[in-house]
């Protein structure tokens, strides 16, 4: 059974208590920001801001909407970051969180490039930098607590529970008030499913949520990597075969052998 969080944009009041609670629990510093004409700040998630609330003004279905979406790592069921990382610094745990280990990372940043949600962030300002992203408060979860952001959320917009149960509940909420929700649970299928799930009154692309397919982004890679052992054996065999055939056809006469002193290019 794996844990998940359901973020209901119809309940989120954009108060950003989650954003601050996350900083507090993770002991992250406040970033220096400026107001550039919106309520949103910091402008993006960073290595020091693991979650932020995105504000979208949208006209949809004949109504003006102001929708708030909390952005953080989605804790994918088939995480690209984990598949990408050469040292296995990212691991999807059975309980749900996708976790990162400072003690393995070498800083190649493939995880950052691979993540379909643009989540892992880097400590660019630090000469000894690490990757940072939402941990799903795995440390709190092991202690029997909810994630800090969920605990702080005043409106019930964030609900922490078993993933299956939350998906069922999400569909119930849609069915109960079909006029209030688009009929889609973001994260149920996206990139093979994620542990953070979203409900919204407007289509998700209007919220700036990446439009991604339902196939895990890792499938093609897995297929390709599965081909490695046969390719290895195959190419080795093929090359040996060719070498043997060519050598036999050429006979000893016109043959070139590497140990032919004359032929390896010793300057005269």
């Amino acid at each position: 059974m794996s844990k998940a969080v359901l973020c209901d944009a119809n309940k989120c009041i954009g108060c950003r208590a989650c954003q601050v609670a996350c900083k507090q629990w993770n002991e992250m510093p406040g970033e220096t920001t400026t107001n550039t004409g919106s309520y949103e700040n910091p402008p993006k998630t960073t290595a020091y801001t693991l979650t932020k609330v995105h504000f979208s003004e949208a006209d949809y279905d004949g109504k003006f909407h102001w929708v708030f979406t909390k952005i953080q790592c989605m804790h994918c069921e088939h995480p690209a970051c984990a598949a990408a990382c050469l040292v296995g610094a990212f691991q999807k745990t059975e309980e749900g969180p996708v976790l990162y280990d400072d003690h393995k990372c070498i800083g190649c940043r493939y995880c950052m490039v691979a993540c379909p949600f643009g989540i892992p962030a880097y400590q660019w300002d630090d000469p000894t930098p690490w990757v940072r992203k939402c941990t799903f408060c795995a440390d709190r979860q092991t202690g029997g607590l909810k994630p800090a952001c969920v605990t702080a959320c005043p409106s019930g917009a964030l609900k922490f529970s078993e993933r299956d149960a939350l998906i069922a509940e999400a569909h119930q909420r849609i069915a109960a008030e079909p006029s209030k929700y688009v009929n889609h649970v973001y994260g149920e299928e996206e990139v093979g499913g994620t542990s953070w799930l979203y409900l919204s009154p407007v289509p998700f692309d209007m919220l700036g949520m990446p439009v991604v397919g339902s196939e895990a982004v890792t499938v093609n890679v897995e297929r390709a990597m599965g081909a490695v052992p046969p390719v290895l054996v195959g190419v080795a065999a093929l090359m040996s075969g060719i070498y043997w055939l060519v050598k036999r056809r050429q006979g000893s006469g016109g043959a070139v052998t590497p140990d032919d002193k004359e032929r390896v290019g010793v300057p005269k």
């Binding site: 598949a83 070498i106 800083g107 000894t128 990597m225």
Partner: peptide
């Protein structure tokens, strides 16, 4: 980012990567 740890890949294999 942490080139001094490049050796780590010899000890932490993610053969799927």
């Amino acid at each position: 980012g942490q080139p001094w740890y490049i050796w780590r890949f010899l000890f932490n294999w993610n053969i799927h990567s």
